[in-house]
Nucleic acid binder design. Structure first.
Lengths: 210, 210
DNA sequence: TAGATAAAGTTATTTGGTCACAAAAGTAGG
DNA sequence: CCTACTTTTGTGACCAAATAACTTTATCTA
C-alpha cells in the first residue's frame, strides 16, 4: 500500500500524515461493476481513490436513476465526507466504473486529522469544492441541455474516464444513467451514427469524432 | 453588530472567535431584491447571514435561469466559501429574497480561522454539507419530478421562507426560477386554482391548502 | 439447431412545452 | 374619469420529445 499511497498522495500530504494513513488505512481492490456504497447505508470508513474510476448515482423513490458524476484518480467522495462528519446515511450509490484501488480510512481518524494536519484540511475542503462544482455541472446539464446534448456529453465523459473510444454499454444502461427511456437513446444514437460521429454495435458504441 | 452576532452565532462559536469576527467583520443591511453576488465576480469577503433570506440562482450562457436553493438565517454560502478558498469566480448569483442583514468577513481571516478555531472548522464543513444536500435535492426535483410537482414544491418553499401564505410574484418570474415557460406555469396554476389549492390574483398567489 | 433471452428498431399515441394572439388589469397623462 | 399604453394572464393551434406496445435481430445455450 505504501507505494500506491506515496505515488498518489505523496506530494499532497505531509510525511507524518502519510505515515498515519499507512498505519490505519486498509488497501482494497475492487472489480468493475461492484457496489462500493448503497443509498441509506452508514459509512464507517472513508475511501481514498488510488486508481480507477467510480461513478456516483442518485436514485429517487421509484427506482429511477441518475448519474451525478465520476470520481477519478486522487479524488475522494465528498458525499462520504458528509456522511462521516455528519454521521448520516449515504444519499448516493457508488459503483466501480472500472477496476479500482482504494485506501480505506476509519472515520474517527479523519476527524482527528482535520485539526492535526493542514494538508488534510485542504484536501477535504478541496474535495467539497470539487464535488460542488461537479454537482453544479450536473444541474446545468439536466436543466439547460436537451437530451441530444446531454448524450453527447455523456459519451465523451464516458470515453474519457475509460480512456477508450469504445463504450461497452447497452442503450438501456445509458438511458438509466441519463434518466430517460431506451427508445429516446436509441433514436438519438442512430442520429449520431447517421452523422458519422459514432458507429453502433450490439453492446458497444465506437466514438469516431465528437 | 455584536448583538446580532452573539444572538445568531453565540452558541456556535468560541468567545475568542466571536471577538475576532466583531473586530474585522462588517455589518451590512441589504434590501429585498438587491443582488449580493453576480456570476463571474471575484469574492473578497464572506457573508454570514444574520437575518433574512437569500436566493441562489444558476444561469447558463443564454440567460436562462434556475433557482438552486434558499439560504436562511444562520447559513452561509458554501459557494462563496468555494470561491474564497479556491480564489475562483462566483458560479452563482445571489439575490436578497427578503430584507437581510449580513456580517461580511475578509477572506484571509477565514483561512486563518480554519486552523485556529475548531468551531469555525465545523461551521465551514457543516455549510458544505448543507449545500451539497440542498443541491442534491435540487437535482432530484429537476430530474425526477414533473413540472406540476416542482411548482407545488416551489410554492411551498417560497411561502415557508417568506412566512406568508401569499406569494407576490408574476407567473413569468416563477417560470424563470423553475426554468420553464410562462404559459406552462399559468396553465398549471390555473389547474391548482380549480382544485381549490390556491387562489390567483394579479401579481399575487394565495396558498389555501397544499 | 431450436428455443430462450437480451438488445435494438419501429410505429402510434400521449404529453408537455412553444408560438402567436386575445383579453383583462393596472398605470399615467390629459 | 376617460383614453392610450403597459403589464400580466388566458387560450387554442401546433410541434417535438417521451412512452408504450410490438417486431426484428443478435446471442447464448441446451
Amino acid at each position: 500500500m505504501i507505494k500506491a499511497l506515496t505515488e498518489r498522495y505523496g506530494t499532497l500530504f505531509e510525511d507524518a500524515l502519510l505515515e498515519e494513513i499507512d498505519q490505519v488505512g486498509l488497501y482494497k481492490e475492487i472489480p468493475e461493476g461492484s457496489t462500493l456504497m448503497e443509498i441509506g447505508e452508514y459509512i464507517k470508513s472513508m475511501p481514498l481513490l488510488v486508481s480507477g474510476v467510480i461513478k456516483i448515482l442518485r436514485e429517487d423513490g421509484h427506482g429511477d436513476e441518475l448519474l451525478l458524476y465520476f470520481l477519478e484518480n486522487g479524488d475522494t467522495c465528498a458525499m462520504t465526507l458528509t456522511c462521516c462528519l455528519g454521521h448520516t446515511k449515504s444519499e448516493i450509490r457508488a459503483i466501480a466504473e472500472t477496476d479500482a484501488a482504494l485506501i480505506m480510512v476509519p472515520v474517527q481518524k479523519m476527524e482527528e486529522w482535520l485539526s492535526k494536519y493542514k494538508s488534510w484540511r485542504n484536501f477535504v475542503l478541496q474535495s467539497y469544492h470539487n464535488r460542488l462544482n461537479e454537482l453544479l455541472e450536473t444541474v446545468d446539464s439536466i436543466a439547460f441541455l436537451k437530451m441530444d446534448e446531454r448524450l453527447l456529453k455523456y459519451l465523451n465523459k464516458k470515453a474519457k474516464v475509460n480512456k477508450d473510444h469504445n463504450i461497452y454499454s447497452t442503450h438501456q444502461e445509458i438511458a438509466y444513467e441519463l434518466h430517460t427511456s431506451r427508445v429516446v437513446i436509441s433514436r438519438l444514437l442512430k442520429k449520431l451514427e447517421n452523422m458519422d460521429k459514432i458507429t453502433l454495435n450490439r453492446n458497444h458504441i465506437t466514438i469516431l469524432n465528437l
